[in-house]
Simulated scan of single mutants.
Amino acid sequence: MGITVNGIDIDDALIEQELPHHQQAANPLKQSVHEVVLRTVLLQEVGRLGIEGSDDDARIEALLAREVRVPEADLAACETYYRNHPRQFTRGELVEARHILFQVTPSVPLELVRGTAEAILEAIKAEPARFGELAAQYSNCSSGAVGGSLGQLARGACVPEFDDVLFRLGAGELAGNLVETRFGLHILEVVRRIDGVVLPFDAVRSQIADYLGTAAWQRGVHQYLQILVGRARIEGITLEGSQSPLVQ
């Protein structure tokens, strides 16, 4: 592929070996190339510093442990995070909800589906009592047979984009706009809420410290990679940043 790192050619075979690990990426080939280039940069730095280890992974780990130093999360940082993210530490929170799903398929233009969904949403806003009737008539979800009812849902039970809206609505509140998910377009209403209990700080302090420490470590590695990439002579590709799964 004509890619070199500090004058050393990147073998296409290395990229082919890396490719199976990135099949879920938006662009598997591009991600694989970036991964191999970053790994090469790290191993060249390992060699320059004379770092030893049982294999390449161990040597890279030793390099990062030596070069990336981040402070531990102190009590004040943990308390601040706890105060600012109460929902993250709430347990037992439930919502009873109902929805109408308008499934998007290749055979039906998205604009047509969206137009129908928006018209039904406006009809429900005008006459809320019709929700069940319209769910039975239009929903592409089996819940339409029971008025769109999804029963009681815990946080995290649904896909993130749905969950995010679901737990921001109050009891009896209808989402003002369509909710878009990988399944299609939804009209969503929360029927009832059961408030959870926020865990005490002492019960989650170590969890918060671990999270903040990991986040700081990832930022530190990212910055270190940026320095190495900026210092390296890389030809044949332009790296769009230096974050890599191999060091996360």
Rank of each mutant, 00 (worst) to 15 (best):
N177Q: 15
E189A: 07
E133W: 10
D210A: 04
T214V: 08
A123S: 07
L166V: 03
T116G: 01
G156K: 02
S206R: 11
N177R: 15
A216V: 07
A145C: 13
A154G: 11
A203V: 02
A136D: 10
R192F: 04
H186V: 01
S143T: 04
A154D: 01
P106K: 01
A154N: 12
R130Y: 15
V204M: 10
T116R: 09
F162C: 04
A117K: 01
Y138W: 15
D210M: 05
E127R: 13
R130I: 12
G170M: 09
D210L: 06
P160D: 05
R182T: 10
R193E: 06
S139Q: 11
E173K: 02
A136G: 13
L153R: 10
F162S: 06
T181Q: 13
G170Y: 06
G184P: 09
P109D: 11
G213A: 10
E161T: 04
V197A: 10
G213N: 09
R130K: 15
A154K: 05
V190C: 04
A135T: 06
A135H: 08
L169C: 00
D210F: 02
H186L: 04
V146F: 13
Q137P: 07
E173H: 06
R193L: 02
E111C: 01
A216C: 05
I194A: 09
L134C: 13
G115N: 05
A171F: 02
H186C: 03
E173P: 01
L178P: 10
R205L: 04
K125Q: 09
G148E: 11
E118K: 03
D195M: 08
L134R: 15
E173T: 01
F183V: 06
L110Q: 07
R168P: 04
V191P: 00
L199P: 03
G115R: 06
E118R: 08
Y211V: 03
R205K: 13
G115A: 04
I120R: 12
P109N: 11
L112R: 03
E118I: 06
S206E: 14
L174F: 00
P109L: 11
S139D: 08
I194K: 13
A216M: 06
L150W: 14
Q218Y: 08
P109Q: 06
L153N: 02
R182S: 14
R168A: 05
F183I: 12
V165W: 05
I208C: 08
L188Q: 04
R168F: 06
E180R: 11
V146L: 04
P128A: 12
G213I: 05
I120T: 00
G132C: 12
F201D: 07
Q137C: 15
S143M: 12
L166A: 07
